[in-house]
């Protein structure tokens, strides 16, 4: 990490060397923040944020259903099903999606059969494909911490809430979600952080359009052999991730205080 930080102030001396650090400058950062690369960073953030949000929107109801509705004896089956994709290599299962999504692949066949889509499927090498792959690859990382948190939640608390007059939705927002918030935070971070640096999913499914920062950094290091620029980009990416996490963290803290303030009780009686 420190090397990367150090390298990022260096430069690429000539075609045959990857790095020189005799003159330190911020020049590489200017380059890394220039509009072409900047766009890639923003695209990466967009894919990561949407991917994280989608994982949560799919993962939470699933984890809730699994921990509340499915009898305990059948839960291991579902947990195993979620984990099966993890048994194969990340790259392999992503390539698997290429086959499924190919213009004349299985999905195209099914859609065609259903009459929903008649021409060749053009999902592959688009941002949509990347998004799909991202959700598929990272969903288990969201579901598992959520499931653990929900499973540990005493069902009696939800009943107490309903007993006191709160409907399902209120119970969800006032009791369930606050109490599983550590699991939610864990799931969000577990998906968002590795996803932001991921370059396999984007490369395999996105082609040129799915260029993500992870891929860009990889190119600078191993293709262009410009370690200084690569390092600068890596630092920018880490800072961006940190900024996003901090931003949402602050929102969460402020939100929490607002909720606390709104449900406060001030006894008229002197304590």
């Amino acid at each position: 990490m420190l090397w990367i930080l150090f390298y990022s102030f260096g430069y690429k001396p000539d075609l045959y060397h990857s790095i020189a650090t005799d003159r330190l400058s911020l020049g590489q950062y200017k380059l890394a923040a220039s509009s072409t690369f900047f766009q890639t960073f923003m695209g990466t953030l967009r894919i990561s944020l949407t991917g994280t949000a989608l994982c949560f929107l799919i993962g939470f109801p699933f984890a809730y259903w699994l921990s509340v509705r499915v009898p305990p004896s059948r839960r291991p089956i579902f947990l195993a099903l979620i984990l099966i994709p993890f048994w194969t290599n990340f790259l392999v299962r992503t390539i698997g999606w290429r086959i499924l999504l190919a213009p004349s692949g299985i999905f195209a066949g099914v859609l065609h059969f259903l009459g929903l889509h008649s021409t060749a499927l053009e999902v592959l090498d688009t941002r949509g494909a990347v998004q799909l792959g991202v959700v598929y690859n990272y969903l288990p990382l969201m579901i598992l911490p959520l499931y653990v948190a929900l499973d540990r939640l005493d069902p009696g608390l939800r009943e107490a809430s309903k007993d006191l007059g709160a409907g399902r939705v209120r119970t969800l927002f006032k009791v369930t979600i606050p109490l599983v918030s550590p699991g939610i935070i864990a799931g969000l971070l577990l998906v968002f952080i590795p996803l932001s640096g991921d370059f396999i999913t984007a490369t395999v499914l996105g082609g040129a359009k799915g260029n993500m920062a992870g891929r860009m950094i990889y190119d600078q290091f191993l293709v262009a052999q410009n370690w200084a620029l690569g390092s600068a980009m890596a630092v920018v990416l880490i800072l961006l991730i940190a900024a996003v996490v901090l931003f949402f963290g602050l929102i969460a803290i402020v939100g929490r205080h607002i909720i606390r303030y709104r449900r406060r009780v001030e006894l008229a009686i002197a304590v």
Binding site: D154, G156, L157, E159, A160, S161, K162, D163, L164, G165, A166, G167, V175, P178, L179, R263
Partner: peptide, 20 residues
């Protein structure tokens, strides 16, 4: 449903909300 009934319950394990 429970939330529309004019009854309240004292649960065996109390079921107090730990975050409040």
């Amino acid at each position: 449903p429970p939330y529309k009934r004019d009854v309240n319950t004292v649960f065996q394990a109390y079921a107090l909300f730990p975050h409040m």
